[in-house]
């Protein structure tokens, strides 16, 4: 492919203005940026080439893509991917929040245990952990309820308990929890200490201080990173293909293993991942907006408002230039 990149240095716009006339207010002429236009043009040419290739290059096999993208196997696999993401993320955030509060507690024991948890689970690669959980039966033959180190009242074999989906969920959740703990902790630390003092001075009970005063403010700092984590997990679920779980990536591998149409099927997976992350990004935008209440004097416009404003502005400029003629 031929690449043309414009790296021209911007030229200073030379303007030899006449000495200002005292009687008339001079008209302002904005600076011209020819180099910027050239660079934009060059980039657009590259983009056009790429788009052209997407359409015309037969390797993409778009007919195969459209044959599979909405097929029952793939849609079902997308469902499994979503299920893994939602369950592991919810469990991860629940456990992560508990861990975050443990790390901020006054008890050195709770602090140390939470720290050690994060240390361990951030240190083990997800894929290693998943295989570990998959082999849980080898590690612990039986799990039971009873007095610690004492008699056991009720027990069951682990072999039947943790299927491959269960192992994947446990692995993903525990892994997510370690990261979620840090995300939540960073949010809690971002809230001014004076807020807790004010709540304490008003006699507000501890649990309500956290729920009503601290967490809503912590959310502002938590949400952007939490969004990262969720999107990371959505794509990260693809590693569970090692356990032969029928999620999206595993399923496209199965199909192209059979048909040999590797590229179009990878595009099927890509399209779905992009679609899902886009949807998540939009949701994230609105959730963040909701938690920004009171943070700014005037809330930022929604994308819809922005588009409306843009249309209005363009129409107005069109009208004014029309008047000028």
């Amino acid at each position: 492919m031929e690449l043309t990149t414009g790296t021209a240095t911007p030229l200073p716009a030379t303007a030899h203005a006449d000495p200002p006339d005292a009687s008339a207010t001079p008209k302002v002429v904005p600076a011209r940026h020819p180099a910027r236009w050239i660079a934009a043009l060059a980039v657009l040419v590259v983009v056009a080439q790429f788009a052209h290739g997407l359409v015309t290059n037969p390797v993409w096999e778009w007919n195969v893509f459209s044959q599979y993208v909405l097929s029952q196997t793939i849609v079902h696999a997308v469902g499994v991917t979503l299920e893994l993401t939602v369950c592991a993320q919810m469990a991860g955030f629940l456990l992560g929040t508990v861990l975050a509060f443990m790390r901020l507690s006054r008890s050195p024991v709770l602090r140390t245990v939470a720290w050690a948890y994060v240390w361990v689970f951030r240190s083990i690669p997800m894929i290693v952990q998943l295989v570990f959980w998959f082999n849980l039966g080898a590690l612990y033959r039986q799990l039971g309820l009873g007095i610690p180190f004492g008699p056991v009242f009720w027990s069951f074999a682990t072999n039947g308990l943790v299927g491959s989906i269960g192992a994947a969920l446990i692995g993903l959740s525990l892994h997510q929890a370690a990261y979620a703990a840090e995300v939540v902790r960073s949010g809690l630390l971002a809230v001014d200490h004076g807020q807790l003092e004010a709540a304490a001075a008003l006699g507000i009970p501890r649990a309500r201080q956290i729920r009503r005063i601290v967490l809503p403010q912590a959310m502002r700092a938590i949400l952007p990173t939490a969004g990262n984590e969720i999107i990371g997990l959505l794509k990260g679920t693809s590693v569970v293909y090692v356990m032969a779980i029928g999620e999206l990536f595993y399923q496209v591998q199965v199909v192209y293993g059979r048909t040999g149409q590797v590229i179009p099927l990878l595009m099927v997976a890509t399209a779905w991942y992009v679609l899902l992350t886009s949807a998540l990004s939009i949701v994230q935008h609105y959730v963040e907006r909701r938690f920004a209440r009171g943070a700014d004097r005037t809330p930022p416009p929604t994308p819809a408002q922005r588009v409306r404003r843009l249309v209005r502005d363009v129409r107005q400029t069109a009208l004014t230039t029309g008047d000028g003629k």
Partner: peptide, 16 residues
């Protein structure tokens, strides 16, 4: 503390 009102230098109102 409910019998003791406290006004802070930095107000410490709940911004949300």
């Amino acid at each position: 503390r409910t019998h003791i009102g406290f006004v802070f230098q930095n107000f410490n109102l709940f911004p949300h």
